[in-house]
Nucleic acid binder design. Sequence first.
DNA 1: CTGTTAGCGCATTCAC
DNA 2: GTGAATGCGCTAACAG
Lengths: 349, 349
Amino acid sequence: MRPTVHDIAESAGVSLATVDRVLNDRPGVRAVTRAKVEAAIAALGYVRDVAAANLAKGRVYPLVFIVPAGENPFMRALEAEIRRAGRHSAAERTRLSVVTVPVFDAAALAAAIDAAAVSDAAGIAAVAVDAPEVAAAIGRAREAGIPVVTLVSDLAASGRDHFVGVDNIAAGRTAGSLMGRFLGGRPGPVAVLAGSMRVRDHRDRLEGFLAAMAAMPVHRAVLPVLEGQDDPAVSQERIAGLLAAVPDLAGLYSLGAGNSGLVAALAGRSDICVIAHELTADTRAALEAGVIDAVLNQDAGHEVRSAVRVLRAKADGLPVIAAQERIRIDIFIRDNLPPAAEEEPHQGD
Amino acid sequence: MRPTVHDIAESAGVSLATVDRVLNDRPGVRAVTRAKVEAAIAALGYVRDVAAANLAKGRVYPLVFIVPAGENPFMRALEAEIRRAGRHSAAERTRLSVVTVPVFDAAALAAAIDAAAVSDAAGIAAVAVDAPEVAAAIGRAREAGIPVVTLVSDLAASGRDHFVGVDNIAAGRTAGSLMGRFLGGRPGPVAVLAGSMRVRDHRDRLEGFLAAMAAMPVHRAVLPVLEGQDDPAVSQERIAGLLAAVPDLAGLYSLGAGNSGLVAALAGRSDICVIAHELTADTRAALEAGVIDAVLNQDAGHEVRSAVRVLRAKADGLPVIAAQERIRIDIFIRDNLPPAAEEEPHQGD
DNA sequence: CTGTTAGCGCATTCAC
DNA sequence: GTGAATGCGCTAACAG
């Protein structure tokens, strides 16, 4: 059997309580005693049984997730993953709650963060909006000792503890690279549809995309960015206009949401190379139909679980192994689509 | 607080032991009593605290992983992931051990399975070889009540409890589809390098690849399969011969291992579209250098953790949600490469 | 068939 | 400064 606290207590000639003080780095232990205990710990190769520790602590971690409201399918999937994680979070002694705020509404987001902070939240995860009042609210929460992570969209200036999401510049580069290879020597310009250039992740994706396109062996024109506000109707209108104006369009990169509108506007035009973000019902269907050629995805489930792990670690004052929490950029084409999500997918991976 | 066994015992008017019997579906409870308890469980919305349950059980699950020996980088990565999982398996009360057997050696594999079965193994995970004696050994283990899962390479005929690995036909299709799109209208035949056509996963990948190539709008010749025995030296020789014999080669699909030899033979020929399997140091470097264009990967860490979950579930007689345990086919190009693995990556996702 | 009791490994009062 | 005792939620003998 693995050594337990009893073993190290006996081996060090002290009591359980003292061992516990050393283990949890609490005061009230003489340096010599501490050294003895630490020696025993090292000698026996003790590793704490986290499950038992949590059981004994009895402490629960109320974590608040703040996500934008609205129809954005990815955000709804994210919310669903939070709720799912919440149901399975029993063992981790976390209690997850979701708060939705109007899209792009900095004031509402700031208010939600403040509200979470005054509640007994042990941690806050929020899809950030790039605005000073949001940064200020995050600052206040952290001032109050509550760890905060940004989710999907970052706000580095806020001093948040951690960002859970993908490297969006790399995502844009990946899109550009795939687009270039898929198009090969075929002529014609490519267009970009974004949600809003006021959002950080969209700016990053565009930057990466342009860089990758510029690095391609054959030059290809990239048309001015269209903004669809992540809204299907607006996006559809923009794309319809684009198709009418640019008959020889070769490719289209949709780096935001609102893809159902895009698909509707495209209406079977499978000659254009289309790359979009986030695997949702819309993009999956379009991929299967051959309207979209590739989808870049960030796994919402992974992100939620990562956020929970990070917040718990921060709440306990434990370190976070950044490399371990990196979120991957998944590439999906028609042939490697995972089976459609059913009842209760995922738990570990 | 969440309801506990005490709450449901009180609510149902029975003792803890009875509640436990119902929860764990053990005999010795009258139907009426059982019904009462189940009603209380449902009414209170009770969910068992697995961590506490495991703590109380004290039971450990010795799981044996059997993987091929040799230099195959993917297999070594798999072994590393098993050891890593072993170090973190404390909380899950599993004890992982690794046994290596000579590559493609059915007799040795069968013997290893038998040996694991006579030890006190609670479960066996093995990279299967397609041979009757292996199937027989798996049958014996299962006869002895020991759950068995096949890992990476399946052997459905053995009656194994579960297969942990990717859909290799889909993987081949993905490779073919990418190859076709990357090549576009460019002329020239494509070649396939396999390890051995006697292995199931290689046959599956080939099948998928051929199907995808055949489905492409432009016809493209696929040369007869080369077999490199998953060996770098043999592979290098085969590829060198290929390059000499087919000057207008357009693409190359490496569906097995031995990729370091392939890269050596290619020596900077970045004009050929190359797609390979498994992200290892070799393939990563070749991807970054532009020698390999895409790598299809199965995440060894995910596979190990899935195998552990499945074996534990089977050992406890619990159901396995298949959809939850599906292993994805990752596509990597130069631009979405994850950071190189460092010290202690992964834990959850 | 059902109930009592004693831990699993750890954290935490409260004494000394 | 240090130790003894109690309990987290659950399981597993052992009684009845």
